[in-house]
């Protein structure tokens, strides 16, 4: 079976400092994988390299076995990477459903230019139906017509997830989904995500600082520290390892 995401030796330097050195990780289809590490470990940089926001100096990013290292962000998105943002990025001045509709339309591909320009204005019935199915799954059905400005942060994150799901991703990258949410909201979000993921079977790579969420949500984890992978394996074992504790807590930080 080909891995959904396969990065090989990704290396990135900022002003002489190695932000990532030789990071290689695998995400299998349908898997939920965590990527954790202390502040400044390079998690966000790695994310950006996978998405194409940053170009790695060395190393490759393979998506379903295809090398996408040279492709721009939107081409990678069309090949099956969906994502959410740590600071939510919504479109403003539109409704919840509009967010999903535009993603659905992009997925269906560009038409003739003049048709895209003038025709195809109103969303078709099946476009709306496709969006509403996802909204239903995420528990957002009642908010479909709501202007985006009226949403809470937690709901906003779900809209981001919904928007990403409309592209039918093979891999969903979640960027610190718990940031800005309190404990209960985080748990709700995790439950919804898990349900949708199990129903649709895409893989998830979760970058997260909340260790509890990672422990509850993922089966396997990678740990980054100083731009290097220092541990990988089943999440429970990874979290129990003294190396990881030291990365988080400093030398001698963990008991035992």
């Amino acid at each position: 079976m080909t891995a959904v995401l396969d990065t090989r030796g990704v290396t990135k330097t900022f002003a002489g400092v190695q932000a990532l050195s030789d990071v290689s990780l695998l995400v299998e289809p349908g898997e939920r994988v965590g990527l954790i590490g202390p502040n400044g470990a390079g998690k966000t940089t790695f994310f950006n390299c996978v998405l194409g926001v940053l170009r790695a100096e060395r190393g490759q990013v393979l998506l379903d076995g295809e090398d996408v290292s040279a492709l721009p962000v939107h081409e990678r998105a069309r090949r099956g990477i969906g994502r959410t943002f740590q600071r939510i990025e919504l479109f403003g001045e539109s409704t919840v459903r509009d967010h999903l509709l535009i993603a659905e339309r992009v997925r269906r591909g560009d038409g003739r230019l003049w048709r895209d320009l003038l025709g195809r204005g109103r969303p078709s019935a099946d476009e709306v139906a496709a969006c509403d199915r996802v909204l239903e799954q995420l528990g957002l059905a009642e908010l479909a017509e709501e202007p985006i400005e009226h949403l809470s942060l937690g709901q906003g994150r779900l809209v981001e997830v919904g928007r990403a799901l409309m592209t039918r991703p093979r891999l969903l990258l979640l960027d610190e989904p718990s940031s800005g949410l309190d404990r209960r909201e985080t748990a709700d979000l995790a439950a919804t995500l898990r349900a949708v993921q199990q129903a649709q079977g895409f893989a998830i790579l979760l970058v997260e600082h909340d260790v509890e969420l990672v422990a509850n949500f993922t089966s396997r984890s990678y740990v980054l520290d100083f731009g290097t992978l220092i541990a990988e394996g089943p999440t429970d074992e990874v979290l129990a390892s003294s190396l990881v504790r030291e990365a988080y807590l400093g030398p001698g930080g963990g008991p035992g």
């Binding site: 939107h74 990025e89 919504l90 479109f91 535009i102 992009v106 981001e160 928007r163 990403a164 592209t167």
Partner: peptide, 13 residues
Amino acid sequence: RGSEVASESIGIS
């Protein structure tokens, strides 16, 4: 106009 990164992340060029 709303968010360039988010637009690209759903495949908009």
